Amino acid sequence: MSQSTGFNIEDLINASPLNGGGAAQEPKVEQLLGTLRRLQQGQRALEEEIKEIKSVSESLQKELTALQTEAYQLEGIQKEKEELCRKLEFQCEESEQDLSRQLNHNKKSEELLQQYRCEIQEFKLKQRKMRMKFENQLHQLIEQHKNLYSVFTPERLPDEIESAENTKRQLLSAEQMKLTQLHHLNEELEEMKKLKQPVAIAAESQQE
């Protein structure tokens, strides 16, 4: 630093008078003033360097503080992410368990629905057979009444007709009862379909 200002320690030694040497040449005033100016310039340069160092130090300190603050914030964010990740893993496990339960329930519902379908088909078949039997009986009854018309007297004919009508009403009542049972089974089947739809939709949403 002293070389940049043109000042050397040897100059100061040479400019100082020697102790006990009265014959040494005393430095001139101009030389002393020049040395003083160089010293002042060196001092100002040192002061500028000190200011610059302080400025850089302050900047570095601010940057360090900012980095520490950012690191603290990142640590907080990391903890939040880890907590969120744990919650999502727990929710995922619960969702998988719910899906498994829904699939099992869906399987049981499908089996029960298939059972109801078989029962309904069997009931329809029985109902068809009963209807055909009823129609045959009714046809036979009509034929019998046609044949009996020539046998029985007109006085007994109303009683025979009433008896035939009673038989017809009984057969119609039996048929109506079977139709009512069939209607109830159809309603139960529709209820099972409605219960199955939300489960299937939830399973499809979970797979997506």
Rank of each mutant, 00 (worst) to 15 (best):
Q127R: 00
I120H: 00
E135W: 04
F134N: 10
K124Q: 10
E110H: 02
Q137N: 14
E143H: 09
Q137V: 13
Q140F: 09
E110Q: 12
N136D: 12
L112E: 02
L112Q: 08
Q114C: 09
K129I: 14
F123H: 14
Q144A: 13
K133T: 03
E119L: 05
R117F: 01
L112C: 03
Q114P: 05
E119R: 08
R117T: 12
H139L: 08
K126T: 14
L125T: 13
Y116D: 03
Q140H: 12
H145M: 11
E143A: 13
K133Y: 04
K126V: 10
M132T: 03
C118H: 03
E122L: 01
K146Q: 12
L141A: 04
C118L: 08
Q121Y: 02
L141I: 05
K146E: 15
F123L: 01
R128K: 11
E143Q: 14
E143G: 00
R117Y: 09
Q121H: 04
E135V: 07
Y116R: 04
K129P: 00
E135G: 06
Q121I: 06
K124I: 10
M132N: 05
E111K: 03
E111G: 02
F123D: 04
R128H: 05
Q121D: 10
E111P: 05
E110I: 05
I142C: 08
E135T: 11
L141F: 06
E110K: 07
I120F: 04
L112I: 05
Q137C: 06
K129N: 15
I142E: 15
H139W: 07
E122W: 02
K129M: 12
Q114N: 13
L113C: 07
K126L: 13
L141N: 12
E143W: 14
E122N: 06
Q114S: 10
F123E: 02
E119W: 02
R128P: 02
Q121S: 10
E119D: 06
E111D: 09
R128Y: 04
R128F: 07
K146G: 03
R117L: 10
L113M: 07
K146P: 00
E122T: 11
E135D: 11
C118W: 01
K129A: 12
M132K: 05
R117G: 04
Q144D: 15
C118F: 01
N136T: 15
F123R: 03
Q140A: 14
Q115D: 10
R131F: 14
H139M: 13
Q140C: 07
K129V: 13
M132V: 06
R117D: 13
N136P: 02
F134W: 05
R128I: 10
E110F: 02
M132W: 01
H145N: 14
K146I: 15
Q121V: 06
F134T: 10
L113H: 06
I120E: 01
C118P: 01
H145G: 01
R117I: 03
Q137A: 09
L112K: 04
K126M: 06
E135S: 13
M130G: 08
L138V: 11
Q121L: 07
Q115Y: 05
L113Y: 09
R128L: 07
L113P: 07
E143S: 15
K126D: 13
Q137D: 15
Q115V: 00
M130N: 09
L138A: 14
L138W: 12
H145D: 12
E143L: 11
K126A: 10
Q114T: 05
F123Q: 03
Q140I: 09
L141G: 03
E119K: 06
Q137T: 09
Q115K: 05
Y116F: 09
E135I: 07
Q127W: 01
E135C: 04
L141W: 11
H145L: 15
